[in-house]
């Protein structure tokens, strides 16, 4: 079994329901996010459009975070999920530096690395990840990539010419796909980041070193 995610960006309307569901389900502290929806505006007025892109851990088959972790706090589960053991983590932030998707953060409460686990605890109880349940338009499709009859496999087959991953040149083989994505939504260097784009203006920055 290799679990994977697919987001159909044609369907996503940027409601951020997945983002909130994730925060509540996983008790993600303030100023940090396991999943968030990025808004990018394209074009010049009046010819403009807004794109919405949910971003989370890609659970790569060849995960740089797993490779760089000196204590195996980041590890693979049999179902392909890249999980994290927060009791094992020493907070070296190597994984934060290695992840090309910016999906890992240092939890300001536990002072350890954390990230999306595809809600591994819910999967273990045969439930869907919280973000999948919360999505009102079923833009998040989750399932077994090894099972040709799963929804995600069928979706990928139906949209073969339009399925993309983020930063394929990194060789990480992400288990997270997008349908309807483009350079603007998937490439962080393709859009400007002006002052004021942040969700919150005053963010709590992490202290340097091991303050608890």
């Amino acid at each position: 079994m290799q679990l994977g995610f697919l987001v159909d960006l044609h369907l996503c309307m940027g409601c951020k329901g997945c983002e909130i569901a994730c925060k509540v389900e996983n008790e993600v502290p303030l100023s940090t996010w396991r999943l968030r929806v990025k808004y990018v505006d394209v074009g010049t007025f009046p010819e403009t459009k807004r794109t919405f892109t949910p971003l989370r851990c890609n659970h790569c088959e060849n995960a740089p975070c797993e490779r760089i972790c000196p204590v195996s706090a980041l590890h693979y589960l049999d179902n392909g999920i890249v999980n994290i053991d927060k009791e094992r983590c020493i907070g070296c932030a190597g994984c934060v530096m290695a992840c090309p998707y910016g999906a890992i953060y240092i939890d300001p409460i536990t002072q350890t690395a954390d990230k999306c686990t595809y809600c591994a605890h819910r999967i273990a109880s045969s439930m869907m990840p919280a973000c999948v349940v919360a999505c009102p338009v079923e833009a998040n499709i989750f399932g077994d990539l090894d099972d040709a009859a799963s929804n995600i496999s069928k979706y990928i087959q139906r949209n073969q010419s339009n399925v993309q991953v983020r930063k394929p040149e990194k060789g990480t083989n992400p288990h997270h796909y997008y349908v309807g994505g483009g350079n603007v939504s998937l490439n962080p260097l393709a859009s400007q980041r002006n002052e004021g784009h942040n969700l919150f203006g005053k963010i709590t920055t992490l202290p340097v070193g091991g303050h608890h």
């Binding site: 996010w33 968030r36 929806v37 990025k38 808004y39 990018v40 505006d41 394209v42 074009g43 010049t44 807004r50 350079n183 603007v184 393709a190 859009s191 400007q192 980041r193 002006n194 784009h197 942040n198 969700l199």
Partner: peptide, 9 residues
Amino acid sequence: TQAVVTLDV
């Protein structure tokens, strides 16, 4: 692209 990130963390 003339693309601008208008909301993100």
